[in-house]
Nucleic acid binder design. Structure first.
Lengths: 239, 239
DNA sequence: CGGGTGGTTGAGCTTTCTCAAATAGAGTGG
DNA sequence: CCACTCTATTTGAGAAAGCTCAACCACCCG
């Protein structure tokens, strides 16, 4: 059940079998969540963190006018709110973009886990720092990349992250994001996302139909995205 | 020397005198850094974290075309690269925007400190999560706020963060950011920042001259920024 | 077959950008 | 104290990217 999570951790560091065992014992039973359900509300007092088993979650914030900005997408193996362990409440919501399976880990368990295994503490600290690195890359996207590059970059990131947890096949992956979802990730309007996706298709960089993205030209997509995966810290080393 | 740092920590949690002592013993001698100097280069192997004593630092990333995006500003009391403790290298640069004084803390010391004081571990973990929360707010700014709101928001954030470390006086603070620096924070061009600042001045929300910002109408500035300080976690509680 | 959601298109508009030049200010050497 | 230089700010005019609004289409599912 937490295999994707272990894959993600082991992509960046060694996890001993003792640590693995301790993690497994900390994770609660899986529960299902329908699409569009808000799992975490801004401001709520939190005592658990949420591990995504299956499906896609997002973190989002919005302005008074209702304009929404997604700040991160979550794929299986991610904690959606590990940061709530120290923040205690969050300043953003967490919502299911598809039907999901999630499992809760009580902060109490995380406290024991991190005190008993200082190395795991650093692994999980690393994990929240990785989220922050993705935030910075998105900041760069929104601040400086044109529409085409923003969307291309989002697809590159998703591809690499899904590959780590074995959710890609032949340069393609399931992607239940609507064009409106994408627009909320990249800070554009749905209409402009639509036209930009057409451009990506027309230049034969991707296909995107029936909820599946196929990357036709990875080098080309990377180029228009100026995608450099260094920010995903894809190297196994002792943290 | 690390008073600002302790103020920042104690704004969000209690720090015992024993912990304070341990922190003090971990911090190296202060060194000065000239403006525009790059302290940390993307990709470099890091074994220290950098505590800002005085001046202003920024984290930035850039695209091939040279377009630069600042992802965070640092004020006295901040660690500029505490996240390097677990990341080991960074995917962005850290640069001095003004002449600065900084002090280094070896990762070895941080390891001892966090293993000896699990509470301090969580305090510093919190601190990197706070950086991430600021990143998310900037993502919202760049994705959804218009130029006026973005700049207003930046000034609100700076004001609150500087107030915590006693660097404001009568609704004003020293601000050595050039309009180009600001444009690199908010994802606009310097020209547009210039016109937008004029608008903020004309509406009597701020003054900004001779490197000093004065907030004339805090409520009004907050309103156009849609500034809600919840993302700065300004509450003291046990982490 | 009907309703709903999500994708597509067109036309006109707004915000922000680009480029180029002028102005102001701070610091330096004579 | 005065030129001189360098950097930062300001202004103008035209262009481009992305937005708005409104309608239409396609597919899915019951």
């Amino acid at each position: 059940m937490i295999d994707a999570h272990l894959k993600k951790l082991r992509k960046r560091d060694d996890i001993s079998s003792e640590e693995e065992q301790a993690i497994r014992e900390s994770v609660g039973a899986a529960q299902t969540v329908p699409a569009d359900h808000i799992l975490i509300r801004r401001g709520a007092e939190l005592t658990n963190s949420t591990l995504l088993i299956d499906g896609m979650l997002c973190r989002f914030k919005d302005l008074r006018g209702g304009q929404r900005q997604i700040t991160e997408l979550h794929v299986p193996g991610d904690f959606a709110d590990l940061h709530s362990f120290t923040l205690k409440r969050l300043e953003h919501d967490v919502m299911a973009l598809t039907p999901c399976r999630v499992a809760l880990v009580p902060h109490e368990r995380l406290k024991e886990l991190t005190e008993r295994f200082p190395h795991l503490m650093r692994v999980y600290w690393f994990s929240t720092n990785l989220d922050a690195a993705m935030h910075r890359e998105w900041t760069l996207s929104l601040g400086r990349r044109p529409a085409l590059g923003r969307i291309a970059h989002l697809l590159c990131e998703l591809y690499v992250r899904l590959e780590i947890v074995d959710l890609t096949r032949d340069w393609s992956f399931d992607c239940h994001l609507t064009q409106t979802d994408i627009s909320e990730c990249v800070g554009l309007t749905p209409v402009h996302v639509n036209r930009t996706l057409q451009e990506l298709r027309k230049s034969r960089l991707i296909e995107f139909e029936r909820r599946r993205v196929t990357i036709l030209d990875w080098k080309g997509l990377q180029r228009v995205a100026e995608f450099n995966p260094e920010y995903l810290y894809l190297e196994r080393r002792s943290r």
